[in-house]
Design a protein around this nucleic acid. Structure first.
Length: 277
DNA sequence: CCCCAGGTAGGCT
DNA sequence: AGCCTACATGGG
């Protein structure tokens, strides 16, 4: 994708492979909103970006253009990916048509771990609400927003606190996520196979196979995973399989079917099933 | 009042 | 290993 990094923005040329609505509303990230001017604003870690549209494409306005160029993975060729997968199934073709400008983000790992622990058996509106409260109460104030809390800022946050922000029965997991995360991050994550990495992620309380897959896909750039939730379970039975399987088995089946395109296909499908036009 | 949401942990067999 | 159920909370 053609783009230029400027001092306080990233200029993106073309709209075929970049659409802020598709990128942000597909369930991979929870800290974003549409401002009063109709532009998407997104936060990652302690950074902020506003995405403006123009005739040629989009301008990502931010103090951290290099960070967001990486965050949006602008060097990834999505035209190629889409052309390679659209013929695989009518439901995939339809999903791509509904979310043609979707991209998988490269998010901050700690934020991704915490966010997807909160996501379990929850709905997106409430996930966003809980994370927003967390940032407001604990995160550093920067300009006109709050950063996601750092690992150090998780020190001393107990179960009571996480209940107070609405985390419900996930509160004890969040109260101890810091230690498990630090232990995990001591290892050489990049050297681990997908299976090994998933196994290690699942040592964190509140992280099962589905949440581990989301962390791998959105926070660790592992594209060969297929997170299976209620929605993907439905897609499986409606389009790809007759045999009754558990969710991890469905994930394995679809990963073997779609190989290194698994993560992309999963996201196009998730968007098309969950987002109204 | 019910059911559902990007599931998981713990207990049982 | 594979099945079963409780689980907080807010919205429809």
């Amino acid at each position: 994708m053609k783009y230029e990094i400027h001092e306080k923005s990233v200029e993106i040329f073309g709209k075929e492979d970049f659409n802020p609505k598709h990128i942000l509303e597909c369930g991979q990230i929870f800290r974003f909103f549409v401002n009063c001017e109709g532009n998407y604003v997104v936060y990652s870690s302690d950074k902020k970006a506003e995405i403006l549209e123009n005739d040629n494409g989009y301008i990502v306005v931010t103090k951290h253009p290099k960070y967001f160029a990486e965050f949006f993975n602008l060097d990834k060729d999505y035209s190629k990916i889409k052309s390679e997968i659209e013929g695989l199934s009518p439901v995939i073709k339809e999903a791509i048509n509904s979310a043609s400008g979707l991209r998988i983000l490269k998010q901050d790992l700690f934020e991704t771990v915490v966010s997807f622990i909160i996501s379990a058996n929850n709905n997106i509106k409430r996930i966003k609400l809980i994370i927003e409260r967390l940032c407001e109460k604990v995160g550093s104030r920067i300009d006109d927003y709050y950063a996601f809390p750092t690992i150090d800022q998780f020190n001393g946050l107990d179960e009571e606190f996480f209940k107070s922000i609405g985390a419900g029965y996930r509160a004890p997991y969040l109260a101890e996520v810091k230690n498990a995360y630090l232990l995990l991050n001591k290892g050489d994550l990049g050297a681990m196979s997908d299976i090994e990495l998933r196994k290690n992620l699942m040592k964190i309380k509140g992280v099962g196979p589905k949440v581990a897959d989301c962390i791998m896909l959105f926070g660790l750039n592992r594209e060969k995973v297929f997170p299976v939730d209620v929605w993907m379970e439905r897609v499986y039975y409606e389009n790809f399989g007759e045999k009754k399987l558990s969710r991890p088995e469905i994930s394995k089946f679809l990963t073997e079917k779609f190989g290194n395109k698994s993560g992309f296909i999963q996201q196009y499908l998730f968007y098309s099933k969950t987002v109204k036009n």
